[in-house]
Design a protein around this nucleic acid. Structure first.
Ligand SMILES: [Zn+2]
Ligand SMILES: [Zn+2]
Ligand SMILES: [Zn+2]
Ligand SMILES: [Zn+2]
Lengths: 133, 133
DNA sequence: CCTAAAAATGTTATGTTATTACATATCAAT
DNA sequence: ATTGATATGTAATAACATAACATTTTTAGG
């Protein structure tokens, strides 16, 4: 009974990758995911990357560009190009995803002001989380 | 007669890499820089990466995490952890570096609010620039 | 149901980005 | 000159990502 857009039923590999990311307590590289899924029959990186591409398309997974790693979306699933921000703790590797409307709007204005047609934003904050201070 | 902090004299390799980036009209990967500098005696990636590390430390170069590529700073040289934002055109590959004080302050507040000790920010906006629309 | 097109998967090889490890050279301060 | 710190040279390897092609599964029409 979600009030949100309907997302396609996940295929076998997509579901496996998604489950790994949801269970993880930190962002995982594609190759880490591959290692976890060897028991389930995964053999090659492409199996992971293809699943990740779809999951990102569905807004269920995000890539952290500054880590070359992936996390499950902690919102109900971000819309395709909705800008999110990530706070990444360098101590405990925890990541929290922020859906900050004002940040999104600020970035939108910034782009507008330069006549820049914004398609996608990457916002990643590195530092120390509350627990690690 | 700059009013800014004094930056160290660049070493030979650092100067070579810096010159390549300043001349470039788009972000360059480390391996592209290596190719350009083969004539000047560069042989291995590490020569480039070491120079880049120092240049980034000095605030003279920034890494675009979403491209795995590097650009020369277009400000007088960013302070170590000063947050900058980059607008990256997916059509012409041009990059413009924005020093937006309000964005920086907004990200600072966002972090404070979560008791997050902010060390470094990555803000990269992808889309189409003014000229390409 | 049958079939054709589209999407997903399997597999191998390769391309691209970044670091480890260790040797040598240069520089700066006693 | 001696010493310690920084910078450089080089080879090998690790880590991240895609190309190309074959096969299977899913989906939608007839
Ligand atoms: Zn999300
Ligand atoms: Zn932490
Ligand atoms: Zn800068
Ligand atoms: Zn452009």
């Amino acid at each position: 009974m979600s009030s949100h857009a309907h997302h396609p039923v996940l295929k076998k590999n997509q579901k496996l990758v998604q489950d790994v990311l949801v269970s993880a307590c930190a962002p995982l590289s594609a190759y880490s995911i591959l290692d976890v899924l060897r028991d389930q029959g995964f053999r090659a990186p492409l199996q992971v990357y293809r699943a990740l591409d779809k999951l990102m398309e569905f807004g269920l997974v995000h890539k952290l560009e500054s880590l070359n790693a992936f996390v499950a979306c902690t919102h109900d699933a971000c819309e395709a190009n909705e800008p999110a921000a990530f706070m990444i703790c360098e101590e405990c590797e925890s990541v929290s995803e922020l859906g900050d409307t004002r940040l999104a709007s600020h970035l939108g204005k910034l782009a507008d002001h330069e006549n820049f047609a914004l398609k996608h934003t990457t916002v990643e904050l590195h530092g120390r989380c509350k627990n690690c201070s």
